Amino acid sequence: MNAPTRPVFATCDLCDAFENDTTGSFRVLPPVFNDYGAIGKFCGPVVTLRCLEDNSRVREAVNSPGFLETPQGCVGRVLVIDGAGSLRRALVGGNLAAAAARNGWAGIVVDGAVRDLTELREAQVGIRALALVPMRTAKRDEGQADIAVQIQGTWVRPGDWLYADEDGIVVAAQALHN
């Protein structure tokens, strides 16, 4: 695997370019996510999960290849986790972040909590979440993959492209960069 390329983009510029979009193909996530990863700017095609306080599906995802080989090169994917905004248990911790980095994921966005801040900051992957909480999840082998999810009121679908930088997170129905 070649290292994923890191495209140049700015979410502010993307918002300026698509501010008049009325199709719903361009969406902005609310500014409620905190940056916990070593990579502050990331983008890629979306893989979705829905899981409440059980990270069994998250473990499966980050232990699988997180990249796609395309004619333009290797592209890291972004795992978007609908944790229903729960702050009771962390869906991603240091071990899962390290696995995501090792397997080529560009980033993880959690509508919920994460833990192990020192380890998250060492893993070479972008991580956004609502908050930190030290409690780990239960392991009940529950959750759904590859479905449309609503993240803080905004629809995110498998195959969408997610762009995250210091100004925020936007989602589009297709890649918006070269």
Rank of each mutant, 00 (worst) to 15 (best):
T11D: 08
T11Q: 01
T11Y: 08
C12G: 02
D13H: 06
C15F: 03
C15I: 12
N20S: 13
N20P: 07
D21M: 12
T23H: 03
G24L: 03
R27T: 12
R27I: 13
P30K: 09
P31H: 14
P31W: 12
P31C: 11
P31Q: 15
V32P: 09
D35S: 15
Y36K: 08
G37S: 10
G37P: 06
A38S: 13
I39A: 09
G40N: 14
C43T: 11
G44L: 00
V46E: 00
T48C: 11
R50Y: 13
L52W: 15
E53F: 08
E53W: 09
D54R: 08
N55M: 08
N55Q: 06
R57P: 10
R57F: 14
R57T: 14
N63H: 10
S64I: 04
G66L: 00
G66S: 00
F67G: 00
L68G: 06
E69H: 04
T70Y: 00
T70S: 05
T70N: 00
P71T: 04
P71G: 01
P71F: 06
P71D: 05
Q72L: 13
G73A: 03
C74I: 07
C74M: 03
C74H: 02
G76V: 00
R77P: 01
R77T: 01
V78T: 03
L79H: 03
L79S: 00
D82R: 09
A84G: 08
A84K: 14
S86V: 07
L87P: 12
L87A: 06
R89D: 11
A90V: 04
A90F: 10
A90E: 02
L91P: 10
L91D: 01
G93A: 06
L96D: 08
L96Q: 02
L96V: 05
L96I: 01
A97K: 10
A98K: 09
A100I: 04
N103G: 03
G104P: 06
G104C: 03
W105M: 12
A106N: 05
G107R: 01
G107Q: 04
I108F: 13
V109L: 15
D111V: 10
D111C: 14
G112I: 12
V114S: 06
R115A: 10
D116A: 10
D116N: 12
L117E: 15
T118Q: 14
T118S: 12
T118W: 15
L120V: 07
E122W: 13
A123H: 06
Q124Y: 11
Q124A: 12
Q124P: 08
G126M: 03
R128Y: 09
A129S: 11
L130S: 08
A131S: 13
L132Q: 07
P134Q: 13
P134I: 11
M135C: 13
R136T: 10
T137F: 02
R140C: 15
E142Y: 11
D146W: 04
I147F: 00
A148F: 07
V149M: 02
Q150M: 14
I151F: 07
T154R: 02
T154H: 04
P158G: 01
